[in-house]
């Protein structure tokens, strides 16, 4: 069963990749193991915790619930693709830093990607909307308040950018 691989072409964080993957492997494993993008985390591997959330053609998706071969031709953004090349944090990262949003930070990649998708679609969400939109991501450390604060800080930072 090792011998059977399928060619996969996708763009991740702006870089094109052409690799051969076993069809049974999920996208998160391929990102982490084949592309060494270990910033995307696996918390439950059954689609509930959201730690593996990445953006696929702009939409947040669970990389653990998607076969890698389904990403053929897609543009993918992971946590590693958010900061500028010079290391300057994305405003959402900077805001989460300011708000002291996370503790162990294992859930962080998922919250960042979900937040970026949320603020793109709704640049000034209410607190209730933030909580609802982030309810697909589990955090066990913080009680979420600091993460909601981080999103609200991001709204301010990104608003002042415009």
């Amino acid at each position: 069963m090792n011998d059977l691989t399928i060619p996969l072409t996708m763009q991740v964080n702006g870089t094109d990749h052409s690799i051969d993957v076993e069809p049974r492997r999920h996208l998160a494993d391929v990102l982490r193991e084949d592309l060494a993008l270990t910033g995307t985390h696996l918390g439950c591997e059954h689609g509930v915790c959201g730690a593996c959330t990445v953006l696929i053609d702009g939409e947040p998706a669970r990389a653990c619930l998607m076969l890698a071969v389904q990403a053929e031709g897609s543009e993918i953004v992971t946590i590693e693709g958010l900061a500028d090349a010079d290391g300057t944090m994305h405003p959402v990262q900077a805001a989460m830093h300011q708000a002291m949003s996370f503790q162990c930070a294992f859930c962080t990649p998922g919250f960042l990607m979900s937040t970026i998708a949320l603020l793109r679609d709704n640049p000034s969400p209410t607190t209730e909307e933030i909580r609802e939109e982030l309810s697909g991501n589990l955090c066990r450390c913080t009680g979420y308040q600091s993460i909601v604060d981080g999103v609200e800080t991001a709204v301010e930072l990104m608003g002042s950018d415009r």
């Binding site: 982490r32 270990t38 910033g39 990262q93 002291m100 996370f102 990649p109």
Partner: peptide
């Protein structure tokens, strides 16, 4: 003081070193 976390400088950009992050 409410000093921002130095851990976040790595963890927020995906540069953590968790146990499963080594070369498989």
């Amino acid at each position: 003081q409410r000093v921002m976390r130095v851990e976040d400088e790595r963890l927020l950009i995906g540069d953590g070193h968790f146990v499963a992050d080594g070369d498989p």
